[in-house]
């Protein structure tokens, strides 16, 4: 890819990132932070790519550590976010629940 193509993708992604969270309600600040945190665990894909062709033992060990850390970020991030949101649906304040249409609770 040319540098300009990458720059274009970067700028457009930044705008999308700003737009998608611009209307977040304050009760969801922590779960959103946690969910976004899980998403950057995708560095796992980069860690796998560089570890795949590591030939020296030092690089292989470094790669194993990077993959381990990235997996903790990615997997743990999504699981803990799900737990936060699970509590959410159970312990919602009455007034907030009243604003939601019937049947929006998870089954």
């Amino acid at each position: 890819m040319s540098g300009l193509t990458i720059l274009t993708i970067f700028v457009l992604a930044a705008f999308v990132g700003v737009e998608v969270v611009s209307k977040v309600s304050s009760t969801l600040h922590t779960p959103l932070m946690s969910g976004a945190n899980a998403i950057h665990g995708i560095i796992l894909v980069g860690a796998v790519m560089v570890t795949a062709h590591a030939t020296s033992p030092v690089l292989l060990v470094l790669g194993a550590i990077a993959i381990l850390l990235a997996t903790v970020n990615l997997v743990g991030g999504f699981v803990v976010t799900d737990r936060m949101l699970e509590m959410f649906s159970g312990k919602k304040p009455a007034q907030q629940r009243a604003q939601e249409p019937v049947g929006s609770e998870r089954p």
Binding site: I9, A13, A14, G17, V18, H29, M33, A36, I39
Partner: peptide, 10 residues
């Protein structure tokens, strides 16, 4: 970039 941008706004 998504996380960087949305994280800054958040």
């Amino acid at each position: 970039t998504l996380v960087g941008a949305s994280g800054t706004i958040l």
